[in-house]
């Protein structure tokens, strides 16, 4: 089936992950820090035990840490792994320190440019930056060729760094609005996702709400990416929880801190978290219920409205 299709792509997270995510896939990770992380989709990947994954993105945060903590990730290729003011992503950190996972460091601009090359169908792209840093001195064992430095053909003597295009197999993103054929609207900061989505071979988008296609046809200048790049649309309210979704709800600092405590403790403590909040929940709605349900979610929604 042609990817560029106006067919209805609405399905459950379970179906989307079953259909599109495979063992060994390179997964493009949407979201940054505590905004619009694709947590519901990450939960589903964990529950289905899709393993030997490579995760790629700019800021890999809590949804990456969950997947690493579940033992499904063999490599991360990224700009940064962490949760900012909430601290380190401890599963990620330990997996690298204990050599259970490969880390391929780039930086944010280089990663987004690699997606830019991918989305334009070109093999590599020049970037200023990284030169003189030790990021170029090391590469993960499984990386074939991390970069190349050439002479600028139009300005002899000028060194230019080239990095390869990155085209993830499957990208997971959480957005505010989508329609049933896959037009997508990201509101507020878009981070690296417009490039990431268009660079990916397939994309699963979870959204706060599904709107009629007419919404996009009458606001076409605000379509972040058109349906051509989207393969599955999953309607999941609060699908970024405990991260935030601009315009809908704030992040849940209490739950993120709770996660961080469990993750820092590691071992049985961390397994208990996964059992309780991931494996033990049939749907993501059950996760939300466990985390305080309507009362808590209304509070986070009001906090967001207060900010706006």
């Amino acid at each position: 089936m042609s990817k560029v299709s106006k067919r209805v792509k609405v399905m459950s997270a379970q179906e989307a992950v079953e259909n599109l995510v495979f063992h060994g896939a390179i997964i493009g990770m949407g979201g940054q820090n505590v905004t619009r992380c694709a947590v519901a989709l990450a939960h589903e990947i964990i529950k289905q035990g899709k393993r030997d994954l490579t995760l790629t993105g700019c800021n890999l945060s809590i949804h990456m840490d969950l997947m690493v903590g579940a033992g499904l990730v063999k490599k991360c290729e990224f700009g940064l792994g962490g949760l900012g003011r909430f601290g380190a992503t401890f599963q990620f950190r330990r997996a690298i320190e204990e050599r259970r996972m490969e880390a391929e460091d780039y930086d944010h601009l280089t990663m987004v440019c690699r997606f830019l090359a991918g989305e334009m169908g070109i093999p590599f792209i020049p970037v200023r930056g990284l030169m003189g840093s030790d990021i170029l001195k090391y590469q993960a064992p499984s990386t074939k060729k991390k970069f190349e430095i050439i002479n600028n053909p139009w300005n002899q003597g000028e060194k230019v760094l080239l990095v390869p295009a990155m085209e993830p197999d499957v990208t997971i993103v959480h957005v505010q609005k989508a329609d049933e054929i896959g037009n997508v609207l990201i509101q507020g900061i878009a981070c690296h996702e417009p490039e990431l989505i268009r660079a990916s071979k397939t994309t699963i988008v979870s959204c706060e709400e599904i709107v009629p296609t007419r919404f996009f046809r009458t606001n076409s200048d605000s379509t972040t990416v058109p349906y051509h790049y989207i393969d599955a649309v999953v309607e999941q309210r609060f699908g970024a929880y405990p991260a935030a979704t601009t315009g809908y709800y704030s992040f849940d600092a209490d739950h993120i801190n709770y996660y961080q405590q469990r993750s820092r403790a590691g071992g049985e403590e961390y397994k208990k978290y996964l059992n309780e909040y991931v494996y033990g929940c049939e749907t993501f709605d059950d996760v939300l219920e466990k985390c305080g349900g309507v009362k808590r979610l209304n509070h986070l929604h009001r906090e967001m409205l207060r900010l706006m």
């Binding site: 700019c58 800021n59 990224f78 700009g79 940064l80 792994g81 962490g82 380190a88 992503t89 990620f92 950190r93 690298i96 320190e97 880390a103 460091d105 780039y106 930086d107 944010h108 601009l109 280089t110 200023r128 930056g129 990284l130 030169m131 003189g132 840093s133 990021i135």
Partner: peptide, 13 residues
């Protein structure tokens, strides 16, 4: 292991 570069390398460069 620390978080890595993020936007820092580009800014420093």
């Amino acid at each position: 292991r620390f978080p890595g570069s993020g936007g820092a390398n580009c800014i420093a460069s």
